[in-house]
Nucleic acid binder design. Structure first.
Length: 737
RNA sequence: GGGCCCGUAGCCUAGCCAGGAGAGGGCGCCGGCCUCCGGAGCCGGAGAUCCCGGGUUCAAAUCCCGGCGGGCCCGCCA
């Protein structure tokens, strides 16, 4: 198609010159700059594609357009009829509309696809280059939820796409196993285990640990918040007393009512419950009566009240989450509650665990790796169901990462890129370095580059530092020439810091080839997710929900099939649907998802259905199973490319041919724009267009031989492409459904 | 306070970077279609101030400026 477009556009300058006398170079310039271009027509009756000619006709009296246009159409037709397979050129109010011979097009693309040339050309893009895709890398402290699931599916789909494009792809999972979060989990697990509370037998280990982690975290946070709230209340009373004094000496611009409220509070300073009741009311009163900048003392009070309100709100949210978990897991809750005497004690213990791990104490490290690996096994189980596999897991605690991290700090200090700041921590000041290195300036532009610490005053490294080390590892040890980090968008800054440091350390090529594949959050309707509070919709739940909704539909159809078969179909379709939902929205946009409506989003099912139907045609025509004998199907189809002519293509058929033509372009675009959602969208459109075609026209039973040949070709090409797309999307393949 | 991203029918989404004809799809809703390669489908219908206001242009959902609304980032956290 694009070939014919190019062909026609190539002749346009000549036609314009012959009719209007405008120099060929002028039209060529318009084409080159994109002012003139071909685009599909809005209605197939107008033709197959059109060119908006207004830029050329601009100088001509509008009354003459139709005459000039007709001449142009005639001239262009004469020039392109033979060479570009053009059948008709029309001029309609400023547009040149062109109809082309689909017989020729179908013949030529069939040969391209059936000979495998299309796929081969696509593979030449990567040409065996080694690309690493790091994805998922979820903290091993709770089960994978929809957010991590989006990461997995985007990463896995992109990796599969890269493979189709001929890259030598390796997928890696980076295990954050020495952070505070893991230490918190281990701290909680030790308490729960020593209290003799056991995991319910049917609960996955990652879900169990998720509960323990959340409750531990909640109890600690509650302790912290209680202390902060008490402090705020003290501040509040102090300020209130001050203001009350001003009020009673009549030196205040506050209303009488507000003054009285404030005084009441300061007199009742010992009745805490009463105070909290007033806090909100006074805050509202102050906000409505005080103008900014008038009275610093009162503004201070307003600020304190606002902070108090926020703290209370947060406390409440933790408490609610705690209640919910305690309801289902009362033994866990009481074990933790009774053992965690104070949050300070708990935090000290957690810090000790962290330090022990970073100092590579054998006992601590063993404990860490045991716990983390248990959770990772849970992850693997979930991911395998989804069809997501990794070539390897890399541990943050590994000597390769930790040693290199310290090396990175030393190198930066030696190179003068980092310095020791007050207190002894090591900092990189990118603001200064951005002045010297344009690369860094551009990286952060138009924002300030900022500064960041890479080694704490106690000598331990930070997450970024270890991430820098890991990046070096990916390039130097794993031998990547290109790295994609599928990481949430909120880490954009950290990823830029990472690139900046790589650049400073002389890894310039590596910095250029390190790509932050950013994706936005998943927003659940009616639930705010928070791993720290144990609030999440897990992938395991999502898969079950999807499977149940599909099974329900299957059973409703009252098919006389074995339950075992139904279950298998439901399971496969559930995976397809789940993956489809998670990849359906462009990574750069927030994915809004309502778990209650999971049965309504059926992108995966629609694609599978078209795939199954196309297989049915091949089965009935030749008695062949496409999934077992692809080569044979292709071989038989090649015979159909010979000798069909004079077929009038219907608009449904033309649409499918157009779709088929787009395949290579879609893959390239999805790759360049890092947008796996485009693959899904394309597959969906192909499936919809195929369903329409299939429903409307007979394939095997078509009487006209040429038309039958054309339809078989279209069907097999669709089948081939759907098969490739399903590979990329990572759906399990079905024969029937 | 500074920086980035997003705003398209009841809901979700494409188109925006490279401006062109009636803003494509899907879900949901209403009405039809199973003697016909498997109806998880097809056909038809209703439903949109393309967030608002300016500007550039023959032409703006698209580009520019200014608002409004939502998200994210600016830690000796990970």
């Amino acid at each position: 198609m694009y070939e014919t477009w190019k062909c026609v556009l190539g002749k346009l300058p000549e036609a314009v010159y012959r009719v209007l006398g405008i120099e060929r170079a002028v039209t060529q310039e318009l084409l080159a700059s994109g002012k003139l271009k071909a685009a599909p027509t809005p209605d197939p009756r107008l033709g197959d594609f059109g060119v908006a000619l207004q830029p050329v006709l601009k100088g001509i009296n509008y009354a003459k357009w139709s005459i000039v246009g007709a001449d142009l159409a005639r001239e262009l037709y004469a020039l392109t009829h033979d060479e570009c397979w053009v059948e008709k050129v029309d001029f309609v109010n400023g547009y040149l509309n062109i109809a082309i011979n689909y017989n020729q097009i179908l013949k030529s693309i069939s040969e391209e696809f059936l000979s495998g040339r299309v796929f081969k050309e696509l593979r030449s893009i990567g040409g065996g280059e080694k690309a690493i895709v790091e994805h998922t890398s979820a903290n091993p402290v709770h089960p994978l939820h929809v957010g991590s699931g989006r990461n997995s599916v985007i990463g896995d789909t992109f990796a599969r796409l890269l493979e189709k494009l001929g890259f030598n792809v390796e997928t890696r999972f980076y295990v954050n196993d020495i952070g505070r979060q893991v230490a918190t989990l281990i701290y909680g697990v030790r308490i729960v285990e020593s209290s003799g509370v056991e995991k319910p037998r049917d609960l996955k280990i990652d879900h169990w640990y998720g509960v323990i982690y959340a409750l531990t975290n909640i109890i600690i946070e509650q302790g912290k918040l209680r202390e902060a709230i008490n402090g705020k209340i003290r501040d509040f009373i102090e300020r209130a007393s001050e203001i009350c004094d001003v009020c009673s000496s009549r030196g205040s611009e506050l209303t009488r009512e507000t003054c009285l409220e404030i005084c009441e509070v300061s007199w009742k300073r010992n009745y805490k419950v009463e105070l909290l009741k007033y806090a909100g009311r006074i805050y509202k009163l102050l906000k409505s009566t005080v103008k900014p900048g008038e009275n610093p003392a009162i503004e201070n009070l307003t600020r304190i009240l606002k902070e108090l309100r926020d703290l209370l709100r947060e406390y409440r949210s933790f408490t609610r989450a705690g209640w919910k978990l305690a309801l289902y897991y009362p033994e866990v809750y009481s074990a933790l509650k009774s053992s965690i005497k104070s949050y300070r004690e708990a935090e000290e213990e957690i810090t000790r665990l962290m330090l022990g791990a970073e100092r590579e104490e054998p006992g601590t490290l063993q404990l860490f790796s045991k716990t983390v690996n248990e959770v990772l096994n849970g992850f693997r189980e979930t991911l395998n169901k989804l069809g997501v596999y990794f070539n390897g897991f890399d541990y943050e605690s590994s000597p390769e990462v930790l040693k290199t991290a310290h090396q990175v700090v030393d190198d930066l200090l030696r190179g003068g890129y980092a310095r020791i700041i007050e207190g002894g921590a090591v900092e990189v000041n990118l603001d200064e370095l951005a002045e010297r290195y344009d690369y860094i300036k551009r990286l952060f532009h138009p924002d300030r580059a900022g500064r960041f610490v890479i080694r704490r005053s106690d000598g331990t490294t930070l997450y970024v530092t270890r991430d820098i080390a890991y990046s070096i590892y990916k390039f130097k040890v794993l031998g990547a020439s290109r790295v994609y980090n599928v990481i949430a968008i909120e880490q954009t800054r950290e990823q830029k810091q990472l690139k900046a440091v790589l650049y400073l350390l002389g890894y310039r090529r590596e910095a250029e080839n390190l790509d932050h594949f950013a994706y936005e959050m998943v927003h659940l309707k009616g639930l705010r997710m928070s791993g720290r509070r144990g609030l999440y919709y897990t992938i395991d739940e999502m898969l079950v929900d999807a499977e149940l909704s599909i099974l329900k539909k299957l059973i409703e159809k009252e098919e006389k099939r074995e339950l075992r078969d139904l279950l298998e179909i439901a399971e496969k379709l559930a995976v397809a649907n789940t993956r489809a939902i998670l990849v359906s929205v462009d990574p750069g946009k927030v994915l809004v998802f309502d778990p209650g409506k999971i049965s309504e989003v059926e992108y995966g099912v629609m694609i599978q259905y078209a795939f199954v139907r196309a297989q049915g045609v091949v089965r009935n025509l030749w008695g062949l199973e496409f999934l077992d004998s692809r080569e044979e199907v292709v071989g038989k189809t090649i015979e159909y490319t010979r000798g069909f002519e004079g077929v009038d293509f219907t608009s449904e058929e033309k649409k499918l041919v157009d779709d088929i033509l787009k395949y290579p372009l879609v893959l390239k675009t999805a790759y360049i724009e890092k947008s796996p959602s485009k693959i899904l969208e394309y597959a969906l459109n192909l499936a919809i267009d195929f369903n329409k075609f299939y429903e409307k026209y007979p394939v095997i039973s078509e009487k006209n031989e040429n038309a039958r040949k054309a339809r078989v070709l279209i069907t097999v090409l669709t089948l081939l492409i759907l098969s490739e797309l399903i590979d990329i999307l990572g759906f399990p393949k079905l024969r029937r459904m």
